[in-house]
Write a protein that binds this DNA or RNA. Structure first.
Length: 484
RNA sequence: UGGGGGUUCGUCUAAUGGCAGGACAGCAGACUCUGGAUCUGUUUGUGGAGGUUCGAAUCCUUCACCCCCAGCCA
């Protein structure tokens, strides 16, 4: 309960007061007595099995209970004794007297109260031995509290007739109205509590707040903002369309677009190298350190600037160098010149390989005239790379998250566990981030330039930095490369 | 073989008798010190068949398909 309120609050929902239906059990009980007195409810002595068996099915009417026509006095007496705990669990129920042949199963003398002695209710303790069914509590609570529009999802549509029957039978002056809307499903994930619980209990994810979980706590830990989620919901809209799982199936990419929209405007830019490749700038003086003033957020100049150190040995992303560049690859390659973001143009002259032939180090030269990132002679480069200074960078762990399932609709498949994406979590150790990130706190959000949006994970402790990828930046090159 | 709902681009959603529009995704291009952002262009849709009407996504008839319901769960 506290967790729900905390999540709601995080989302930006405010409330004046919180009401518990258990605080109104007395009034509800009085109303039940009113129905008994009107001959609209009766105590049934049938066992759960008998009630189930005599309900009939879609094609056959149910059978009326032998206890259906007891006198009002007897019903009142029995109900009172049920309440007082004189009977064991399951021995009796209070049922509304409606129509055992009704086409809508909800109307076949629905149970209003059943007997439950254990475990005690979390708010009322042992005061009550009978508890109302959902249908018998919902509309009555709405009426008690002056609710005008009671919103719910469309699987309750065939409960509305019962909702209204109770209200009409009680003849209250205020009658609330139930209105149903479609549920919102996301593709490439599961939303049902049962399935989410299985993911947690079987260890497919690391708890309810695993950043891959479509729970509010999961999304929050992943770095999604409340603003982005609210905007997403607003952009999806509200309808009664039913395409899947009693609702609509929304593209995950729309959620991601909303997250990017928000983060693009508000997050500070940083440089981080996830898979480092050492680069030695041969003509840069050893021991020299320059500090460049770098914009914190080009979308928001008020965010100011910061200092980023540069030196002779730096690291760039392994993906940003190809010994044999494919067509349309603009980044670094032997003999090619690119820009180091906010710093200098560099040209690659030679490559150092290990015994396996893997590239482990690059030797480059820089052009001092391009300081700050522009060439006075007007020559252009086709790529700009992010980098960190070897001497100044600080180590970090980065967790890249991808969609949890490979199947757009895992709930529709027989075994949704089989549709899990084995690569939904990629843990990268040995990442290097710029020194200004030293004091980043859990929950802080940044854009790692050219990579994506990241936030500091709650697992970060005592100077050990761990970043979660919230959502990657759009990647044109990945698309080009994929197409071949 | 019952009851309750639903069907507009790939997805979500507008248009309630008067030009089928927007967003995301896709594609193409421009621009760019993030192959980011931004901008421009563009493909794709009223489930089917009849009917009413000058005119139908919208009204009528009919067919098809999809979702939910047989807890003393909510």
């Amino acid at each position: 309960m506290d967790a729900i309120m905390e999540d709601a609050h995080w989302l930006g929902i405010e409330w004046e007061k919180v009401l518990y239906s258990s605080d109104f059990f007395d009034l509800l009980y009085e109303w039940a007595i009113r129905l008994v007195k009107k001959g609209k409810a009766y105590v049934d002595d049938q066992s759960p099995e008998e009630v189930s068996r005599t309900r009939g099915d879609w094609n056959h009417p149910g059978i009326e209970s032998p206890w259906r026509n007891r006198s009002v006095e007897e019903n009142l007496d029995l109900l009172e004794r049920m309440k007082n705990g004189e009977f064991p669990d399951g021995s009796r129920t209070l049922r509304a007297k409606i129509d055992m042949a009704h086409g809508n199963m909800n109307m076949r003398d629905p149970i209003m109260y059943r007997i439950i002695h254990e475990p005690p209710h979390h708010r009322t303790g042992k005061k009550w031995c009978i508890y109302p069914m959902y249908d018998w509590a919902q509309g009555q609570n709405d009426a008690m509290h002056g609710v005008t529009h009671s919103l719910c999802s469309i699987e309750y549509e065939d409960h509305r007739i019962l909702y209204e029957w109770y209200l009409d039978a009680l003849e209250l002056e205020h009658k609330p109205r139930q209105i149903e809307f479609a549920r919102l499903n996301l593709n490439y994930t599961v939303m049902s509590k049962r399935k989410l619980r299985r993911l947690v209990e079987e260890g497919h994810v690391n708890g309810w707040n695993d950043p891959r979980m479509p729970t509010l706590r999961g999304m929050r830990r992943r770095g999604y903002t409340a603003e982005a989620i609210r905007n997403f919901v607003a952009r999806v809209g509200v309808s009664k369309t039913i395409n899947a799982r009693a609702g609509v199936m929304v593209d995950f990419s729309l959620l991601e677009a909303c997250v990017r929209d928000d983060l693009n405007l508000h997050s500070l830019r940083k440089m981080a190298v996830l898979k480092p490749l050492k680069v030695v700038i041969d003509n840069y003086p050893a021991g020299m350190v320059e500090e460049f003033d770098v914009l914190n957020n080009p979308e928001d100049l008020d965010a100011g600037t910061r200092k980023v150190p540069f030196s002779r040995v730096i690291y760039i992303e392994q993906d940003d160098f190809r010994e044999e560049p494919p067509p349309k690859y603009f980044r670094l390659a032997p003999g090619r010149e690119v820009r180091l973001r906010n710093a200098y143009f560099i040209q690659c002259n030679s490559v150092v390989k290990d015994e396996n032939g893997a590239v482990v180090e690059l030797h480059c030269t820089y052009d001092p005239a391009t300081r700050g990132g522009d060439s006075p002679d007007g020559r252009k480069v086709k790529a700009t790379l992010h980098w960190v200074s070897a001497e100044h960078a600080i180590p970090a762990e980065v967790r890249n998250y991808d969609r949890l399932f490979n199947n757009p609709d895992p709930e529709a498949s027989g075994d949704f566990i089989a549709d899990l994406n084995p690569n939904s979590l990629e843990v990268l150790e040995g990442c290097l981030v710029e020194p200004s990130l030293k004091d980043a706190q859990p929950g802080d959000r940044f854009q790692f330039e050219r990579l994506g949006y990241y936030c500091v994970d709650i697992d970060s402790t005592g100077g050990r930095l761990i970043f979660n990828r919230t959502v990657p930046l759009k990647d044109e090159w990945a698309k080009v490369e994929k197409k071949g």
